[in-house]
Amino acid sequence: MDAQTFAGLIARAGDKAYNFAFRLSGNEQDARDLVQEAFSRALEHAESYDSTRPFDSWLLRILHNVFLDAMRRHAHSRTVSLDAPSPAEDASWADLLPETAESAHDGMARRESLDLLQRALERLPAPFKAAVALCDVEGLSYEEISAVMGVPVGTVRSRIHQGRVLLRRAYEALETNRGTMS
């Protein structure tokens, strides 16, 4: 892969990779690290890239592997139980919003919902988080997700559904938590 090609690929796939990395990690610093490591590995293994297939998916697959490796290394610090209490900083933004679900179209409430969703997403175990992010955030088909995650389509299908159910549970737990703190 020559330099110009690589520069073009960064420009084309960089946003998508970073967005996925951010959904997986939930913070900017980790997302940066994931993307950097993914591009490094991509370049190291450039010869294994099949140029008849989308570069995006190949890069996302590498990024996902990087993420799984990182998860394994930080297994204890990263895995948060679904019914663990919310972090203390919840208290600070809890009083930003007096009311909840009814005003879903209100911009403020919407932002709060999205914030809760991101937090809920962070709490999902990695396989569900990745499946949901790829499906709902990146808009990939089940087949594409199967290729990125390296698992059969049937597994993708059940992970997405279970992920959504877990996401809903985590979201509702956060919402309840917020209610009791304000």
Partner: peptide
């Protein structure tokens, strides 16, 4: 379920 899919899809995208 659809509401959660929509919510996730609406999350603002982060650019590199």
């Amino acid at each position: 379920l659809r509401a959660f899919k929509r919510l996730a899809a609406d999350a603002p995208r982060r650019a590199l």
